[in-house]
Structure formats: structure tokens, C-alpha cells
Nucleic acid binder design. Sequence first.
DNA 1: ATCCCTGCAAAGCCTTTGCAATGCA
DNA 2: TGCATTGCAAAGGCTTTGCAGGGAT
Lengths: 160, 160
Amino acid sequence: MASSMTSVDRVCAKLRTEGRRVTPQRRVIVEVLMDNGSHLTADQVLRRARRELPDLSPATVYNTLHELAALGVLQELDLGLGLEQRRYDVATEEHDHLVCLRCGRVEDVPRRNGLKGSLGEDHDFEVVDRRVIYLGYCPECSSKNQTVAGSRMASENVGA
Amino acid sequence: MASSMTSVDRVCAKLRTEGRRVTPQRRVIVEVLMDNGSHLTADQVLRRARRELPDLSPATVYNTLHELAALGVLQELDLGLGLEQRRYDVATEEHDHLVCLRCGRVEDVPRRNGLKGSLGEDHDFEVVDRRVIYLGYCPECSSKNQTVAGSRMASENVGA
DNA sequence: ATCCCTGCAAAGCCTTTGCAATGCA
DNA sequence: TGCATTGCAAAGGCTTTGCAGGGAT
């Protein structure tokens, strides 16, 4: 609690430093992000923030989310699996993502090797970053699949 | 040419095998996909197919694209960089993608190591597939960036 | 002769934008 | 007080859906 207050304050301070204003809306949005784990969609942020500010508008949420991303506080995460909503992730160190194809759960995995990763040398691209998504089943769903045989269906719903 | 006809016919045969019908629309869409390289958006497919069939509707294109993806002929590719359109890729062997942050060009890179890739062992997920996007600059844009200094801006427009 | 497929149009979904009113600094 | 920020509402872009007519098998 004390620590989450602190990180909220730290973000607010950063906003002020950048010449931005700290409004009640922004403070609540930041609190939601700090308290509710990662990988929230804009709509999830909106819903939770409305518990405090029922009149909060989607536009304000998007606006704030983008600002925080620009400040480096958040990272926008698009799983790239279709048309699902973008998710917002408190920025930490570089990491990849595990996505459960059954329940949609998203989990972070630390990145083990450098930027190039599995990329060969024989290409002309100047690589500056990479996005890695591992698709599969979380422990719970994995055990369910063994009896329900739903794994093929689910994996067919995912693009390349 | 002869080879592209052949692969078009092969896809049409596959459609019939699956109980689907081969309509002029579908044939043209398949031709576009085979002749025009990979990573086309639905809209690009639509535009090019309309050179042959001016009345072709978007709904038919989407419908056909999804069917071909379900048959394993195509792979849907969502770069996961924001809200850009999905792309359609003739299905070949497993590969990752290079995306130029400046010109948007997409290029395939063969995958060097197995599914697990850079993923460690200490997690509970049952991994069945993965998506890897390398972000950077193609040779042309890379040389332009050195003088134009546009690289920071472009990379800021990309999510995590 | 089936009934799958097509085109049109409308709806859906998430996100962005315009603008006047509000309120932080 | 000045100007960033808010909320509302409308627009935007891509994709999906409903439906009646048309066409492949």
C-alpha cells in the first residue's frame, strides 16, 4: 500500500516535470494501473477507474494512457492475435509474453538473450527491438484440455 | 506463370475437396495472393482483385481470406504494433517477421531454433506456437535515418 | 434443384477527434 | 488568469453480419 502510493506519486511527479497537469482523473487512472496488475485493456482501466470517478470518459482514459506511454511509464501491448484490444503494461525491464489460448491470460517472461535472439546474421535489417509472444495453455487450461480436447479449436483461432 | 497457375489450381482443388465452391471471385482472390507477394492487407487484395472483378465486395474478400486461412493455405498476420490492418501471407514453413518502422515493409526471416526459442524452462505454460516480430529499419531506410534522424520518432510510435 | 456464395448495406468494435466548458497551476 | 484537460458526441477505420438474389455443383 505505502509502496503503491509511492509509485503513484512518482508518476504524478513525472507528469508535472513534463509540464503536464495532475488531475483527479489522471491520478485515479494511475492508481488503477499500479494496483490492478498488468495487461489491462483501456476498457478495464475505464471500468475500474469509474468506481472512483463515475463520469470518467473513455477519451480521457485513452488520452492519459497514451501520455503515460509516451513518458515511458507504460508500454502499449498489442498481442497481435487478431482484433483484440490493446493492453497496458507497467513498464519494467524487457520481457516477452505468454498468452493462454483458452482463457486469455497473459503472463510475463523475462528475456534471456539479447535483441537479436534467434535472428540470423544474414539479413540487412537494422534491428532495434522485437516482440515475442508465446502461445499456449496455462497450467489450469492445459489440464482441462487433456480431457476436453479443446486445444485444436482454440489454436485454429490464432493467426500467424 | 505456369507455376503460379498450378498453385492456384491446387488451392482451388483444395477448396473443392473441402466441400467449398470455386467461384470466379475466389479464383481471382487466390490469383492475387499467389502473384503479388505476401503480407497483403485485405484492402490490397480487394483493390487488386477488382482489376478483374470490379464489383467484388469486401465481405467476399474477408470471407475468402478467412476460409483460406482455415484451410491452412494462408496465415493471418497481425504485426501487433497498434491498429494496423491484418495481413495475409501465403503459408510456407515457419518463419518470423522483420518490420521496417519507417516504410512499413515486412520481410520474412527463417526461424533458426525450435518453438521454445529464447524461452526458459522455469514456467508452467504449455507452449504450442510463437509469434516473433523484429522491429527495425530496412537497408534503404536505415541509411536515410542516419542523416534524417527520424529513428527516435518512429520507434516511439510502436507499442511494447 | 440444392443451398452455398455474393453483394449490398448496416451494424459493431475500439479508438480518435472536435469543441465548449471546466479547473489545475 | 491562461491554457491544458475534460466530457460529450460524432466520426473513423477495419471487419463482421443479415438478408435476398444468384450461381456452382
